[in-house]
Design a protein around this nucleic acid. Sequence first.
RNA 1: GCUGGAAUCGCGUAGUGGCAAUCGCAGGAGACUGUAAAUCUCCCGGCUUCGGCCUUCGUAGGUUCGAGUCCUACUUCCAGCA
Length: 382
Amino acid sequence: MKVKYELIHQDKTTGARFGKAIFIDENGNTQEYETPMFMPVGTQATVKTLSPEQVKATGAGIILANTYHLWQRPGEDVVEKAGGLHKFMNWSGPILTDSGGYQVFSLSNPKGITEEGVKFKSELDGRELFLTPEKSIEIQNALGADIIMSFDECPPATADHQYLKNSIERTLRWAARGKAVHKNENQSLFGIVQGGPHEDLRRWSALETVKLGFDGYAIGGVANDDEEKDDMYKAIEYSVPYLPEDQLRYLMGVGEPVDLIESVRRGIDIFDCVSPTRLARHGNALIPGLRKDAAGNLKENRLNLKNAGFKEDFMPISEDCDCYACKNYTRAYLNHLLRAGEAFGATLLSIHNIRFLIRLTEKMREAIKEDRFAEFIDEFYN
RNA sequence: GCUGGAAUCGCGUAGUGGCAAUCGCAGGAGACUGUAAAUCUCCCGGCUUCGGCCUUCGUAGGUUCGAGUCCUACUUCCAGCA
């Protein structure tokens, strides 16, 4: 399916966007999803520990999968023979594949990045792999997701201005090369803006990427390792003004509640993040409220349900949550499952955490529609 | 009863004459933002001013400059034989 964006309403004081992502298949059938929207991540063609029915029940629309991982295993040819990603993983909603750009950051080293492409050392068997922008798009064409991403370099937060400048130039050339080989008419291809926290670089990257012409735009290179929150917000502020109003704006990899709100405030429509599912597997449940981390940053509030204090706590995870886990199970039961290493604990917490973020986007949408997003933000911080 | 073996942190283990406390589990806590992550880090005998100090290898003796380690007796457990 190809995606189109429809801007329905902008919050009067903040400019936050309420809209629709409309997916249209080759027969003209459509699926519509309201934005702002949070997209759960299913790197290996599965949202870890959840069935598609369970993912659907959280209210999720689009989900992610990853080019790099599926290329290595089982191989894009296998997915293609299976009838494409949707059939392979039994997900009828939209799918977005990341290009492998993030793996340039997490799995390669700077020496492995050349004009031609990126050298990886496989995390599975140690063998050397080489991914190019063309190869990434070809793999994504074969996988058959609805939204596919340009192959970009995702530089670390520590990268300096000069490094970023060279990196962006290369990423722009990669974007053009990828676009040139993009064959699948039934997929939307998104470009990715980079530039760290620098105003000049973000503007330039955004303008040049838009000039190339994509079906939607992402802001990348944020929320990496020790990036300051302010730098993330700057990256958004410096990029968004140059992105087309009538196309989706995707902030890559962001999923802390504070960051969702701060980026919607700045004009972002969609997000993805591994955090709800990873936190779940590590025993943490997102709950309303905020806390300060060791560095003094405002972070999501959460319960570590493995902790001894929940052993005989027969309350739901969160009293005002409407998810399956909260409606049917107690903290004590979760504590037991997590201590016993039972997979169902991770499943229940994943359901809860994803639902938590999706409900946050639902509340944001309501607030934007009613022009009270600024008040909503005030309430969120109090 | 006899013969052999064993006894080290809550549990299981390493250590075989030279700074006891290795590793795993259990336990306590923390980290995690386009998933090398159901992973990783820290703590886990007692005190501590965080630099250290003290205790401790079933029990009691012995040999030795020095014993968890060798010897003797005892206790408990395991296996085999009666």
